[in-house]
Nucleic acid binder design. Structure first.
Length: 524
RNA sequence: GGCGAUGUAGCUCAGCUGGUUAGAGCGGAGAAUUCAUAAUUCUUAGGUCGGCGGUUCGAAUCCGCCCAUCGCCA
C-alpha cells in the first residue's frame, strides 16, 4: 500500500434522482477510504455530479428553468445524500464548476494539438433520448425506434471531433496484459478484452445539436460530449489540467488506486478513459472495479416498474435499524462481485439480527457484563500474557489488511466477525461465569476476561470502517478513549488495554422485532 | 445474431489446474449452557452437483449438445 491513495465514485448524473445504486457505490468507497486512512494512508476520496448533456437541458426546459438551476437543485440533493450517510469524501466536484470546465478545455486543446482528436463527419440514426447514434443495421432491427423510449430515431449528420481511440488498441492490450488486476472482477475484465478484440473505433467527443455542455475550444457550436467531460473529473479535481499543477497540493494523488463504477459504465472507464489518459501522457489508474446491481425483491429495478429503492425507502431502513446497519448490509450483502444482489426486507432483517445484534452487539455485552459483575467494571490483569491470542489476532489483522487493500470488503468484514465468534466460543469453553463462583479461580478468571476484552476491542477497530458510529461507541465503552488518531501500529495490536482500564457494558444494536414490510412499488 | 458467464442442500453461495464418505453461513431440528440483546456453543440437513451423451481406472471439476437465467455487444 502506498502512503497515498485516491478512490473515486462515478460522478452522478443530475438528471436522475438518488437511489440505492448511488448510495451503494458511495458507501463502499467510504468504507475503503475509512479503512485505508485508519491504516495510515493519506486517502483522497472523490465523488460529485455530472451536470451537462442534452437530457439535463431538456428536463430543465420542460420545467421552464435554466439547466444550471436544475443542476444546482439536484446537485444539492446528491450532497444531502452524502450528509445522510455520513460519508467522508474529501471533495465534491461538479462538472459545471469553472475549476472543472477550464481544465477540460485545456485538456482538449492538448488532445487536438497532439492529433489524438480530429475533426470528422458522421451520419447515422440518432436516439435523442439516449444521446447516441445507431448503425444502419441496428436501426433497422429497432424498427427505427429508440429501444429505451420507443420514440422514433432521427436521421442526423454531424461534423464532430473524434477521439482517435483506434490508435491506442495496442497500448491498451499491452496494459491489460501487464496489469492483470487492472479491471476487476475478472469476469468484467474478460468482457472488456472480448470487446476490444472486436476492434476499436474512433469515438465522437463533441456534439453540435445542443448547447448545455463545455464549449469545445476554438470550435464554435461544438460542445464536449458529456462522457468525456465527466471522465475528466477524476483528474480535474486534482488540478492536473491547470497551469500550475502544484498549486493545490493534490496532484500527487494521481493515479487513482480505485475507480469504483457500476458495470454499465465500465467500457468508458476501462477502455476510453485509459486511452484518453495515454493520449494526455498521464498515468493510468491502478484498478477499475465494476460492481454489479442491486435488484429489488427479485426484480430488476426500472422506471417502468417504479420499484427503485429510493431515498425515502432507504431512510426507513436507516431510521429503523440505524445507519451502521445500512452500511453493513451494503458492504456484506451487496453486489460487489460479478453477480447482482437481491435487496429485500427479510434478508436485511436477518443480516441485522445475526451479524449485528447477536454477534457484534451481544459479544461485547456479555464481556462487559462479566467484567462489571466480577471486577467492578475495571479490567483485571492477565498473568497469561494473552495466551495464543496475540498471534491469532495478528493473523486476523493481516488478513483484514490484505482484504481491504484488495477491495475485498466482505473478506475484511469476516475477519472481524471471526474474532468475535472466537471470543464467544472461548467463553463457552472456559465458562468464566462458573469460575467466578470460587475465589480460588480469580487469576484464571481475570486472564480470561482480560483476553476477551482485548479481542473485542481489536475487533471493534476492524469493524469501525463499516460501523463508524457503533465502532466508536464500542471504543468508548472499552477503554473510554476513542483511539482514532493513534497510530495504526498500536491500534492493530493485541493487548493495548491496560490493567485498570474501565470497561462498560454496552448494547450496541438493539433487537428489531420484525422486518420492514417488503417494499411495494412506489408510484413513479 | 456474436462474445462472455451462470445453473451445487429450503435460501445465499465456496468448491484452483479431475481422485477416498460434495462443503460454509442463514433458516429448520436436537443437545449443552446461563455471563449476555430468548443471546452463545456443539451436533444435525442424506442435496440425481440443470439435462443428455462422451473422454478417463475415476468428473461437480475436462469435451460436445440441449434447456434455463443473466451480462456485454451488434
Amino acid at each position: 500500500m502506498n502512503s497515498r491513495a485516491y478512490i473515486t465514485t462515478p460522478i452522478y448524473y443530475v438528471n436522475d434522482r438518488p437511489h440505492i445504486g448511488h448510495a451503494y457505490t458511495t458507501t463502499i468507497c467510504d468504507i475503503w477510504a475509512r479503512a485505508t486512512r485508519a491504516m495510515g494512508t493519506d486517502v483522497f476520496f472523490l465523488t460529485g455530479t455530472d451536470e451537462h448533456g442534452v437530457k439535463v437541458e431538456k428536463s430543465a426546459a420542460a420545467r421552464g428553468i435554466s439547466p444550471q438551476a436544475l443542476a444546482d437543485e439536484n446537485a444539492a440533493e446528491f450532497q444531502r445524500v452524502l450528509a445522510t450517510f455520513a460519508l467522508t469524501n474529501s471533495d465534491f466536484i461538479r462538472t459545471t464548476e469553472p475549476r472543472h470546465t477550464t481544465q477540460v478545455q485545456a485538456f482538449l486543446r492538448k488532445l487536438v494539438a497532439s492529433g489524438a482528436v480530429y475533426l470528422g463527419t458522421f451520419e447515422g440514426w440518432y436516439d435523442e433520448g439516449q444521446e447516441e447514434y445507431h448503425t444502419e443495421n441496428r436501426a433497422r432491427e429497432l424498427n427505427y425506434k429508440s429501444p429505451i423510449s420507443g420514440k422514433p430515431l432521427v436521421r442526423a449528420s454531424e461534423q464532430n471531433y473524434y477521439f482517435r481511440l483506434s490508435a491506442f488498441a495496442d497500448r491498451l492490450s499491452q496494459h491489460y496484459a501487464d496489469h492483470p488486476g487492472f479491471v476487476r472482477p475478472a469476469e468484467r475484465c474478460n468482457e472488456m478484452l472480448g470487446r476490444m478484440r472486436d476492434g476499436l473505433q474512433d469515438v465522437p467527443i463533441t456534439r453540435t445539436n445542443f448547447s448545455w455542455g463545455i464549449p469545445m475550444p476554438d470550435a464554435p457550436g461544438h460542445v464536449v460530449y458529456v462522457w468525456i467531460d465527466a471522465l475528466l473529473n477524476y483528474v480535474t479535481a486534482l488540478g492536473l489540467g491547470s497551469d500550475d499543477v502544484s498549486t493545490n497540493g493534490r496532484a500527487h494523488y494521481w493515479p487513482a488506486q480505485y475507480h469504483i463504477v457500476g458495470k454499465e459504465i465500465l467500457w468508458f472507464h476501462a477502455v476510453i478513459w485509459p486511452a484518453l489518459l495515454m493520449a494526455l501522457e498521464l498515468p493510468v489508474p491502478r484498478c477499475v472495479y465494476a460492481h454489479s446491481f442491486w435488484i429489488a425483491d427479485g426484480q430488476k429495478m426500472s422506471k417502468s416498474l417504479g420499484n427503485f429503492i429510493d431515498l425515502p425507502t432507504i431512510e426507513r431502513y436507516t431510521t429503523t435499524y440505524g445507519l451502521d446497519a445500512w452500511r453493513w448490509y451494503m458492504a456484506t450483502q451487496g453486489p460487489i462481485a460479478a453477480t447482482d444482489s437481491d435487496f429485500n426486507a427479510k434478508h436485511f432483517h436477518e443480516t441485522h439480527t445475526n451479524d449485528l445484534v447477536n454477534t457484534v452487539g451481544n459479544c461485547p455485552s456479555r464481556v462487559g457484563a462479566m467484567i462489571g459483575k466480577y471486577f467492578g467494571g475495571i479490567l483485571p490483569g492477565d498473568a497469561e500474557q494473552g495466551g495464543s491470542w496475540p498471534s491469532r489476532c495478528a493473523g486476523s489483522v493481516e488478513k483484514w489488511e490484505r482484504a481491504m487493500a484488495a477491495f475485498d470488503l466482505v473478506g475484511a468484514s469476516r475477519c472481524a466477525m471471526d474474532l468475535l465468534r472466537q471470543v464467544d466460543a472461548m467463553i463457552n469453553e472456559t465458562e468464566p461465569f462458573k469460575l467466578a463462583k470460587d475465589p480460588a479461580n480469580a487469576a484464571r478468571l481475570a486472564s480470561i476476561l482480560n483476553q476477551c476484552a482485548q479481542v473485542v476491542r481489536l475487533a471493534g477497530v476492524l469493524l469501525e470502517p463499516f460501523l463508524p458510529i457503533k465502532g466508536r461507541e464500542l471504543a468508548m465503552a472499552f477503554g473510554g478513549v476513542p483511539d482514532a488518531g493513534t497510530p495504526w501500529d498500536s491500534r492493530r495490536t493485541y493487548g493495548v488495554l491496560a490493567e485498570g482500564t474501565p470497561i462498560a457494558k454496552v448494547a450496541l444494536f438493539p433487537r428489531v422485532d420484525r422486518p420492514i414490510e417488503s417494499v411495494p412499488a412506489t408510484p413513479a
